[in-house]
């Protein structure tokens, strides 16, 4: 039995310059260099990427879905944050 298991890494891939890195999955690797090498083989076998980020999963802090109400609901009734909230006559152009 192995003494220590390889940690888990989250993989983010930029598909082309101009676009953001997107999370595409995770994998196990002994360190960040190996995570990069494995990510190349696992997630970019068909030209899916031009850049890879790897982050050890334990360093990610995620919000708890149980708190979704207090976190995200306050934004729902703030219609004044959207341009359509404001009444303007039809003949106003370029606005």
């Amino acid at each position: 039995m192995s003494t220590k298991n390889w940690p888990l890494w989250e993989i983010f891939v930029r598909s082309k310059n101009g676009l953001e890195h997107r999370h595409c999955g995770s994998l196990h690797a002994a360190d960040s260099e190996m995570a990069l090498e494995n990510a190349r083989d696992v997630y970019t076998r068909r030209n899916e990427g031009v850049s890879i980020w790897v982050v050890e999963s334990k360093h990610i802090t995620a919000s708890n879905p149980e708190n979704n109400g207090e976190l995200f609901e306050p934004a729902q009734d703030k219609v004044y944050r959207h341009p359509t909230f404001y009444d303007l006559p039809d003949d106003v152009k370029h606005m």
């Binding site: 192995s2 003494t3 220590k4 390889w6 002994a30 360190d31 190996m34």
Partner: peptide
């Protein structure tokens, strides 16, 4: 197994 252990020790 020894490869996995060696990689971890190296890291």
């Amino acid at each position: 197994e020894w490869v996995r252990d060696a990689a971890m020790a190296h890291a």
